[in-house]
């Protein structure tokens, strides 16, 4: 079954810039998909529409059975509970510890403390940061901070994890660590969509790759068919 279905999607920003043109895309449950393309080609815009940070100007977008294009502002949280998002700049709260940052995502639902505790420790273990639970983000390396952000994004057990250049601020070795974590999460059944312009990573991972150009899909590489080229 398709987790994501986009049909005839257009996105024009208020300033008149059209970022996405008549785009069709389907993504299967459990997939790992890269979205690549040059700066300003519309990668972020595309995924922002998936987590309903932006609304499409026209077209149909279904994510996990929710009609995202028609979702009212007051109902966006229902979508957000089904997915996790990770950014280049981590977006951690510096006044909270690693544990509290991850727990934050569960506290807003009012889960009982014991349940929060259990889930947070489990996910910190998954990203290899159990021993840093009491540290503050500023005491961590970039790679560790990104793993905290990933932990926060998946602690709620979402079906979909969206990453916008999660390795953009990290060196090559650290980026590969992050990719390992993401691959692990994908193996546990979470669909992953990752925007990047690091073609090395993309080549190494051998996943489905969607190449965007000026708001259109230029090429859709099947799993393992992408080789260094194109951008």
């Amino acid at each position: 079954m398709n987790l994501i279905r986009m049909k005839g999607v257009n996105k024009q920003y208020k300033n008149g810039v059209t970022a996405i043109y008549d785009l069709d895309l389907t993504i299967e449950k459990g997939d790992f998909v890269f979205i690549i393309g040059s700066t300003g080609c519309g990668k972020s815009t595309l995924i922002k529409m998936l987590y309903r940070e932006e609304k499409p100007t026209s077209g149909k977008i279904i994510v996990g059975g929710l009609d995202v294009a028609k979702l009212r502002n007051g109902k966006v949280y229902k979508l957000r509970r089904k997915l996790g998002v990770v950014f280049q700049d981590f977006k951690l709260l510096s006044k909270l510890t690693v544990y509290e940052n991850v727990a934050f995502a569960l506290e807003v639902f009012g889960l009982p403390k014991s349940e929060i505790h259990e889930k947070v420790l489990k996910v910190l273990d998954l990203v290899g940061l159990k021993n840093k639970a009491k540290h503050y983000p500023t005491e961590l390396s970039g790679g560790e901070q990104q793993r905290v952000a990933i932990a926060r994004a998946i602690v709620n057990g979402p079906k979909l994890l969206i990453c916008d250049e999660p390795t953009g601020n990290l060196d090559e070795a650290t980026s590969m660590e992050i990719m390992k974590v993401l691959e692990e999460i994908n193996k546990l059944g979470t669909t992953i969509i990752m925007v990047t312009h690091d073609t090395n990573i993309v080549s190494l991972m051998k996943k489905r790759v969607i190449l965007l150009d000026a708001g259109r899909i230029l090429k859709d590489y099947e799993k393992g068919t992408y080789t260094h080229e194109g951008i």
């Binding site: 987590y51 502002n73 007051g74 966006v76 949280y77 229902k78 979508l79 957000r80 509970r81 996790g84 998002v85 977006k91 709260l93 934050f104 995502a105 807003v108 639902f109 926060r152 994004a153 709620n156």
Partner: peptide, 14 residues
């Protein structure tokens, strides 16, 4: 702002 942004992101209702 940052806290609010993250709350929205992780699915806190309005």
């Amino acid at each position: 702002r940052r806290e609010i942004e993250i709350m929205r992101l992780v699915g806190a209702s309005n």
